[in-house]
Design a protein around this nucleic acid. Sequence first.
DNA 1: CAGAATCCCTGTCGATACTG
DNA 2: CAGTATCGACAGGGATTCTG
Lengths: 132, 132
Amino acid sequence: MDACAALGAKFELWRTLQLDPEGCPVRGLLDKLGDRWSTLLICSLAAGPKRFSALHRQIPDISKRMLTQTLRTLEADGLVHRDVQPTVPPSVTYSLTPLGRSFAGPLLGLVEWAETHYPAVLETRAETKRAA
Amino acid sequence: MDACAALGAKFELWRTLQLDPEGCPVRGLLDKLGDRWSTLLICSLAAGPKRFSALHRQIPDISKRMLTQTLRTLEADGLVHRDVQPTVPPSVTYSLTPLGRSFAGPLLGLVEWAETHYPAVLETRAETKRAA
DNA sequence: CAGAATCCCTGTCGATACTG
DNA sequence: CAGTATCGACAGGGATTCTG
């Protein structure tokens, strides 16, 4: 059975379970990880633990608000560990948990697919635009 | 080099390229595929071609509006093929393109990770909630 | 330094009604 | 059947300001 058939089979199974978010991992997890910043932060932290301001410098176009919020969500989901040193000024270091690191494999697969096929997608988009 | 280090290395590379969406596949593609419906539709179509109303029945809580819109985006990106039969009443069949099918592999990896680790995530979420 | 709090705008999305 | 059109609600997210 190829990946395509396997995916279809899984979908059929979820469907019989009403596709509710609690029971469907795709909806429960990918909804969260699918936002603009989560995956990017995981990629950044995959290179090693980083402090809040270091993360902010690496991804300049995220606001402090969204950086905080996204990190907290990832922490609540158990993918990221937040280490607070009670010094003055405070120093907070973020790192991937074992669970977060275990996510690197599947994510890398996705990223490699994206790198490989992104040119083709851009080409298709351009054609669609010309046709319109 | 494990997946985690590989991911970190890729991030470092993108960062030197300004992380702009045009040059960064993660931002250019996962932003689109990361919404609530795209991956679900790809899963459904992975089982085989389906007509518009069949897709709608399989995913009851998507509106016709979003179903149309999401399918059109996937078509514009070259992942989905739209086949219109000019009959009365019209019959439109959607299917995965070869590019779309090639996406099934990485997506399956993600789905399997989600299935495996979703219980742990739910547990962590529950703990966080209790602590709050 | 690492946020918390507030304001406000924008796009996203659902509901509904209509059409070829 | 397979959409399109329009409206309105709501939340995502940016900018700014304040704090321990």
